[in-house]
Amino acid sequence: MTVLTVNGVNQVVDAPGDTRLLWVIREHLRLTGTKFGCGLGLCGACTVHLNGEAVRSCQVEIADAEGAMITTIEGLNGGQGGHPVQQAWLELQVPQCGYCQSGQMMNAAAFLAANPSPSDSEIIEAQQGNICRCITYNRIKTAIRRASDIMQGA
């Protein structure tokens, strides 16, 4: 048994310790906003926060996540929704198919928390690992700038 703290709730999970966190979040706890894209940490669709840091949950073994604060898209902004990143994503109508966008937003939220007013090249570097197959990259870039403005009260 592994105890995981997901979106502030302790969850007892009956799964082998090497099970990847992604599958426990999605298939055991049914928080399906987190997506599977590649299984190798190459695409970012499965990005969640571990103690506030963006990680690829398909690469994290649950045994290593015990005791950490895990946040998924459903728990962003304390589960209230409307995080500045989500506000910006809605305002700019970023998603098309939407499949990668939870991962995109989780990645951007952790990045902006650490770097609230980034340069364009810092945004590109930070978001480089998140693939979008509808190729909404230009709107993602704009939305991260917009979220930064919202966070600063603009």
Binding site: G33, G98, S102
Partner: peptide
Amino acid sequence: KLPFDLPGKIDGSAKYGSDVFVPNMVY
């Protein structure tokens, strides 16, 4: 008009084929 499918793609509630669960299912 704001697409009907958009808000769920922002709060993580949008349901895709891979998000289906059925009692007693195997993978």
